[in-house]
Nucleic acid binder design. Sequence first.
RNA 1: AGAGAGUUGGCAGAGUGGUCGAAUGCGGUGGUCUUGAAAACCAUUGUACCGCGAGGUACCGGGGGUUCGAAUCCCUCACUCUCUGCCA
Length: 424
Amino acid sequence: MLLVSYISENKAEVIEGLKKRFFDEPEATINKVLELDEERRQTQKDRDDAQAEANKSAKQIGMLMKSGQKDEAEAAKASAATNKQKAKDLSSRVSELEGELQKLLYQIPNIPRKQVPVGKTDEDNEVMYERGEKPTLPENAKPHWDLIEQYDIVDFELGNKVTGAGFPFYKGKGARMQRALISFFLDEATDAGYMEVQPPILINEASGYGTGQLPDKEGQMYYMGADDLYLIPTAEVPITNMFRGELLQENDLPKKMAGHTPCFRREAGSWGAHVRGLNRLHQFDKVEIVEIQKPEDSEEAHERMTKHVEMLLEKLELPYRRLLLCSGDLGVNANLCYDLEVWSAAQGRWLEVSSISNFGNYQANRLKLRYRDNNKKTSLLHTLNGSALALPRVLAAILENNQTEKGIMIPKVLQKYTNFEVID
RNA sequence: AGAGAGUUGGCAGAGUGGUCGAAUGCGGUGGUCUUGAAAACCAUUGUACCGCGAGGUACCGGGGGUUCGAAUCCCUCACUCUCUGCCA
């Protein structure tokens, strides 16, 4: 969430940013925030004063009791009680105001950076560039959902029986491909300086609020009511929350972590066109990279992370393009986001395989994630993350793009992980 | 899962109703001394909110309660440890 101090110091810019996002009634909302904050401050001041009085009386009573002046002590109790009641009333008013303010702040998205193009849907995203050569497919080329059946490497029917739609089994060379991709991605991340972590895949409510999945995306997560835990939609949640509430030292920065987890998404209401095969699943595997950076370094880190993911796609010999997300498609927590899409030759369309986001201090403010610089000043940190990479669509593209009469050719870089060169 | 014991500042560890934001030790920072270092000595050393400031307020696992006054008493939740049980 945004800092109230930031909102009040950059009111015009914030309203402008919200308009860019097509946010409803930006002026009214921002004014309400500032009003609530003003009232909260005043009420808290009154409360503190009343409490100070009460504390003073309590000390006096203590001394009177000690020196045996019981009557005076009894008299003082009356006025202490009045102040105490007053402080109590004001306290609950402060909590009320804080609650209202926070609720409002949770609804306000991050402010898009200047370079973010204005647009409402993914069609308005800006294609920055394309890399790699689109393959020429044989005449009888098939989409991946046919290929996985032909080679019996992913089984949706089995998944339907055991769990339900969107939970496929990977079998034989298909399963081995998954393991190969995970190892490859993690090895590359480790080489790039990320610490490998294996986080829990269930998270508590506080973590959900910390990275912003709660409250707004509650319906997208699987919820385990018996234990009040959520299945993670992405490793971003547990990994970033490693640092929730921490005060780091400048010399410990940056923090760079990479982790592989299954990811779970209910995708409520979003089933329909374009979701055949591996294009959209309820459970999928992903390697995620997360960075905690000083504010002045986050922009450079964002670019470096994106380059890292592009390098992965290049090594896998997949044609890709880089998109600058428009204001309407940008996630609420992010101020800048690049998507990487791979060319899925038989489907003849681009598939999103990675989103690399810079959240500025928006998440850090929720997380209370700060650092103390070498001048002893504490400030909020910046958080970033990106998929490096999401597996099913990468697999789909490899299957489609590399299909030949002899079978599916495995990219060279993966062969040492698969121990086979072709799926046939 | 059952029984018991715990949770205090960066760490260790006192404190069982009043001037306790909290002894003491270690660690950290600054200084004295030294050619330099160590040792010793001196000083300093939590976070957040409000306030121009002086200063005020809150925080001793979380939440609630009793009391004029709570780290200290009560309730509740979470977590940790020990023993027993179960288990990859």
